[in-house]
């Protein structure tokens, strides 16, 4: 599998597993659902967190100090 599709396919598979599992049963199936569907959300959060531009202090504030 090419590098472009590796992560999207993994996230898609986990999402499918998550969506399908809670309809099958309760208990453990619910946990599989919550974890499977949380992974794409966690990946988005981590990517945003790591690459969010740092706040640059405004010149007036910097000058004030």
């Amino acid at each position: 599998m090419s590098g472009v599709w590796r992560f999207p396919v993994i996230l898609a598979a986990l999402s499918l597993l998550g969506l399908a599992s809670a309809i099958v049963g309760d208990g453990l199936w619910h946990w599989v659902c919550w974890i499977g569907l949380s992974v794409p959300l966690v990946v988005c959060t981590v990517k945003l967190w790591r690459q969010w531009p740092p706040r640059v202090p405004s010149p007036s504030r910097a000058g004030g100090r």
Binding site: P8, S15, L16, P40, V43, C44, K47, P53
Partner: peptide, 22 residues
């Protein structure tokens, strides 16, 4: 840091592909 358009393309691509199945 590459301007509004590039930043939004990247955001659109990442969030879109990560939540695509849902």
């Amino acid at each position: 840091r590459r301007g509004t358009r590039i930043a939004n393309i990247d955001l659109h691509n990442l969030l879109g592909v990560a939540t695509l199945v849902w």
